[in-house]
Design a protein around this nucleic acid. Structure first.
Lengths: 122, 122
DNA sequence: TATTGTGTAATAGAGAAGTAGAACACTATT
DNA sequence: AATAGTGTTCTACTTCTCTATTACACAATA
């Protein structure tokens, strides 16, 4: 995983885990790799991983059992809500940004369709 | 202007200026407010403004005349290219993010159209 | 030429993020 | 009971961002 040095690493780790949970790559109830293992995988310090995880525990996206491991929540409704929140947020940001560049609603849709079309041919 | 504490302020100032230039709010050749004035307007330190501006000078989006002021480039092709670069980057990021959430190409377009439709009615 | 407005640069300090390393608390297993 | 694997916490250090302050360089103008 590569990081954007403009954004805190722990924050990017959180988002990466969000994505893997929403995508089902990490299933409800599934145990995460140990914090030390995650740190190695991400070539990051344990504390940085811990910060990301502990925030997600507070948000109840993860649960933590001391001496055992960290687990994805079993509450699928919460995961669905997370997906909703993330996708809506991403779209809203894009819309705001393109609007600031003075693209009309129609131009925005067209630009995205053009991007997708161009991508398919690769 | 409000700042996101997850991203460096100088970086956000750059993006804000990019947007204002691309949108034509700041015309080619137009003089920017004095750095000290910008600092006051943004409630930020002069050095922070200076860092944003000097990077944009390096990128040749702005030109600087010591003792006179900072000016938007007269090179309209460069501004057009900037708009292209920004909008493409924004779209690419959204696409990547929604794809990571396992939305198909069709669902992506639909979701954006839905967002725009919902927005119009407000 | 003196003053004012402008960009530019340099220093010192505060705070946040990240790293490194160690220690502690708990669980499961042998 | 001992050991290994796990989460959790703490301290010290570095780097980056931002602030505050001061000083310098250049241009326009009274």
């Amino acid at each position: 995983m590569q990081f954007d040095d403009k954004v805190p690493i722990y924050y990017q780790i959180k988002n990466n885990l969000y994505h893997r949970i929403v995508a089902g790559d990490l299933a409800p109830g599934e145990k995460l790799p140990a914090v030390r293992q995650l740190a190695v995988d991400l070539t990051v310090n344990v504390n940085t991983v811990q910060r990301a995880l502990s925030e997600m525990v507070t948000e109840q996206v993860l649960t933590s059992k001391r001496g055992v491991g960290n687990f994805v929540t079993m509450d699928t409704a919460r995961i669905t809500a997370l997906k909703q929140r993330l996708s809506h947020g991403y779209i809203e940001r894009l819309y705001t940004q393109l609007h600031a560049l003075r693209l009309s609603d129609g131009e925005i849709v067209t630009a995205i369709q053009a991007y997708i079309t161009a991508n398919k041919e690769e």
